[in-house]
Amino acid sequence: MDNNQPIIVKRVKKIAGGHHGGAWKIAFADFATAMMAFFLVMWLMTTATPEQKLAISGYFQDPVGFSEGASPYVIDLGGTPVLAPDKTLNPEVRDTLSEEKPQDPSDDVVESMAEQIERERLELLLQELQNKVEDNPQLNKFKDQILFEITQDGLRIQILDAENRPMFALGSAQLQPYFEDILLIMADTIKDVPNKISVSGHTDAKPFASGGGDFGNWELSAGRANAARRTLVAGGYPEEQVARVVGYASSALFDRNDPLNPVNRRIDITVLTKKAQRAIESEQDGEEGEADGEVAPGASLPSATPAGTGEPLQPRELRERLNIFEEGALRFDQPAP
């Protein structure tokens, strides 16, 4: 019994929250609150108008005088800065508030902002169309024949012809099935934007005419552009959104160095800007005025004269021939571009 050693038991008391306890959480919460308040003040300063900033300045310079003649708050419930007249200690603030009035933005500024928004919309449409071409296996096979470009008039979609993949049947405005599929997919995308479109047809420089010489590249390009329009409308594109359908023949070649290059045979679909749309509508209004007998000074009335003759066609005869051509009932002696 005398040799027994005393047994010592040590108990360690654990403090909840780690070594430093929970005090750091309170400090961090205070810091986060202060930062939130700071950024809130910075945001309010960037969104406040000059008048509101002057009102805030007047309030901090003389809070008592500021509140005697008006609301004790810098901004009332209606959102209008209230400043007691003749009470502020800073006369420059009072004079500035009385002289400065909100001004409406000028027409140029509004138009510039509208053009910027419209351009961004067209860029988004361009990106969406490019993604469709990349993701759609049916379109991806023809991606080398589909070009996108944002021009001054809007987003231009060019569908080019190829030697081994022509868009139309030889010598007519009849679309090939794969070209119809391309137009239907395009229609499903461009119909989501409110802008109107312009459809134009182009040929190469190879001379082409029917046996009688009454129809050539001009009529062929116009007929093909109109066939593209009908396909777009069949794909769900609103017909009233088509601003213009026109044929250019070979007057606007894609490859000027090689006028016979197949890429010169193409269909252009331009998603017009509002400015370009207004220009087209003004041109059409002028043409309607001339058709009603109002001829512009220095302008001459158009005439329809078959090639090789000096006799103009009668309107009824011209319409009949154009209708026959549009339905693809003509037979051509020479291969068409």
Rank of each mutant, 00 (worst) to 15 (best):
G298Q: 09
P312I: 04
S300W: 03
E290T: 08
R319A: 14
G289I: 00
G286E: 06
E311I: 01
T305M: 00
E290Y: 01
E294I: 13
G310Y: 03
T305I: 07
E294F: 14
A291M: 13
R319H: 10
A299N: 11
S300H: 07
E283V: 11
S300Y: 10
P315S: 11
E326N: 14
E294L: 14
A296N: 09
D285Q: 15
G298W: 08
G293D: 11
L301Y: 06
P315E: 08
E317H: 06
E287W: 08
I324E: 07
G286D: 04
A279P: 00
S282W: 00
E320S: 15
V295F: 12
E294P: 03
A304Q: 04
P302L: 02
P306W: 00
G310H: 01
E327D: 10
R321H: 14
L313W: 05
G286H: 02
S300A: 11
S300V: 12
E327L: 10
A307I: 07
G289M: 14
P312R: 01
A307C: 01
A304S: 06
L318F: 02
R319V: 08
P315H: 05
L301H: 01
D285L: 10
V295P: 07
D292Y: 04
G289S: 12
S303R: 00
R316P: 06
L301V: 15
D292E: 09
